[in-house]
């Protein structure tokens, strides 16, 4: 189990990987990826019990589903650096013939990916199915998901949220990335979603809050707390407040870097704010 400093180093390297991937092909989604670097690193390096020897069925291990697939740069970086595929393959992000498609897919056989995502709002249903299969298989491992906050505007989520509590899917931990931003502006401007904590609780979920989703210690504590609430008849929601673009000052607190790549100069500035730790690919 890595200590917090090692994990901090991991996070910093992931941030470098994110901006370098996106810069190289001048496309991709750096903002949301940067904001979730701590979450992914904590999940794959410390929280989840998972086999690096990938098998699709995932029997006997914890599973993770990324519902907001556009933050693939952070997912790819963490998967590669957790041993799922060669780190150098990050060089092929969004290139033709690559396994690292713009949005994650099983179609090209990339280890670590169990479902395609990109068209929003589908991941929680898939995770519920995987969680139900675990119960049928008498597999006590957990299923984790991540969703954007704007993504909750998709109605399918609420079908899934209603189902999960009604059917006591209590081996599921769904994290909502509350970065308050979406493509056309802030979530408050585009479509305010009101009190999400009250909504999840009203739907019968356990709710854990991580107020500083870019503070590694808080993320680890919040996920540990979430884990402790599983197995008690209710699904668990983690409301995690993050800052979009965190770690690169000019990308923070704005929706403008949702799907825009940095130019050469901006890349250098971003990298200087995140010095190399584990080695660039």
């Amino acid at each position: 189990m890595p200590d917090t400093q090692q994990l901090e180093n991991f996070v910093t390297q992931v941030r470098r990987d994110i901006v370098r991937q996106v810069h190289k092909v001048n496309s991709g989604h750096p903002g949301g990826s940067l904001g979730c670097a701590e979450f992914f690193s904590a999940l794959y390096q410390e929280v989840m019990e998972h086999n690096n020897n990938f098998s699709m069925d995932g029997i006997g291990e914890d599973l993770f589903f990324l519902s907001n697939g556009h933050i693939s740069p952070v997912f790819y970086s963490v998967l590669a650096r957790s041993g799922y595929f060669p780190i150098e393959e990050l060089n092929t992000f969004r290139l033709i013939n690559s396994r690292l498609q713009g949005h994650p897919t099983t179609h090209e056989g990339l280890p670590g990916i169990r479902i395609a995502s990109g068209s929003l709002g589908q991941g929680m249903s898939v995770a519920i199915g995987a969680a139900e299969a675990k119960k049928l298989n008498k597999d006590s491992h957990l299923v984790y998901t991540l969703h954007g906050d704007g993504e909750l505007q998709e109605g399918q989520n609420w079908e899934a949220i209603m189902y999960a509590s009604a059917k006591k899917v209590d081996n599921l931990i769904s994290t909502i990335d509350l970065n308050g931003q979406q493509i056309d502006g802030s979530t408050e401007q585009v479509l305010p979603m009101g009190n999400l904590k009250a909504k999840f609780q009203a739907f019968g979920w356990e709710v854990v809050e991580i107020k500083e989703g870019n503070n590694l210690t808080e993320v680890l504590a919040g996920l540990k707390e979430a884990k402790s609430r599983t197995g008690k008849g209710k699904p668990v929601c983690v409301l995690m407040t993050t800052v979009m673009g965190h770690g690169v000052d000019f990308m923070m607190h704005t929706h403008k870097w949702h799907g825009v790549a940095p130019n050469d100069e901006q890349l250098e500035e971003a990298l200087s704010q995140n010095p190399e730790t584990l080695g660039d690919y």
Partner: peptide, 25 residues
Amino acid sequence: ERFFQIGIAEANMIGIAAGMTIGGK
């Protein structure tokens, strides 16, 4: 135990079905 009543929520049903295949169902 192998029958899942999803309710009037077809989108959720398709997603849950996709997820179940991951556990070999």
